[in-house]
Amino acid sequence: MRWTEGEDEDVGHGRPRTPERLRGRARRTLPLSPPAGRAAGPGGGGPPLAALVPYRGASGGRANLTLGIVAFILFIAIWYLIVFTGIVSERFLPYPGVVIWTMAELLTKESFQTDVQISVARVWGAFLLSVAAAVPIGIWMSSYRIVGALLEPIVDFIRYLPVPALVPLLIIWFGIGEASKVAVLWMGTFFQLVLLIADDAKRIPREFVETGYTLGAKPRQITRSIVLPAMLPTMVDNLRITLGWCWTWIIVAEIVAANSGIGHYIWSMRRFLKTPEVMAGILVVGIIGLLTDQAVRILHRRLFRYL
């Protein structure tokens, strides 16, 4: 975490100093740092793309975006070439244009929009239920060794049960309605999340907690006013990653037993060997994932301006 960086602080004799030594920018202007020197070039102020090249170099917003787009273009180009040269028959791998067109058409169809809404609702519903349970229990596990020692082994065990293997069981228990989907997603995320949260809470510096005590706080107050805000940035990151897993499990659940949702759509198109539709469905999941992820990242930056 950032607050342990300590040693590398340069200090202006204790006198106030303008805080220009913000990450990245300062690094690029430090004369003695070899990677920075190479990045900046002899004249200084090198192109933003070059700054990304050295080992652990600075990252620039514009350059990042450009490279991200380049990767997508390359991906589509290779895909196109594979079909064009006939390495894979068009029957199994349609041209990218066909898939993208199918997806655009699909998104205007009301029945598919409903499928998307249903999947999104299932994912978020189950995810929030999972978070609501995992955050307090995870913090509890890290706060009291007795709770941690009691729960860790069993959580670890359940965590390793393959979720797809649980699907038949969960259908027997919960039927094929919404409850079984939520149960699958919950099983797939809660046990991972609770350990991640416990870890986040455990990783805050011991001195933070001790500072709380010596300022007169009780354990409950330390949890609320010190542990929680201290762990929040890493926790939000972990929530973001876990939310991604939900999308894996929802498609599994919808393929096995459902009559709605994106997973169900993909599976029903497979029956007619409609490869473009199958791929378009998969692509939609990817796009939703990408958009959510970016939204959470932006939120993260807004919420934790101090990082």
């Binding site: 607050w3 342990t4 510096p205 001195e207 001790e210 500072t211 005590y213 010596t214 805000p229 201290a230």
Partner: peptide
């Protein structure tokens, strides 16, 4: 036990980043 009567300053930085 620890309480407010015994204030402590640590070597590690304990000011809260948030």
């Amino acid at each position: 036990g620890p309480d407010r009567r015994k204030g402590m300053v640590f070597q590690a930085y304990t000011s809260f980043p948030w």
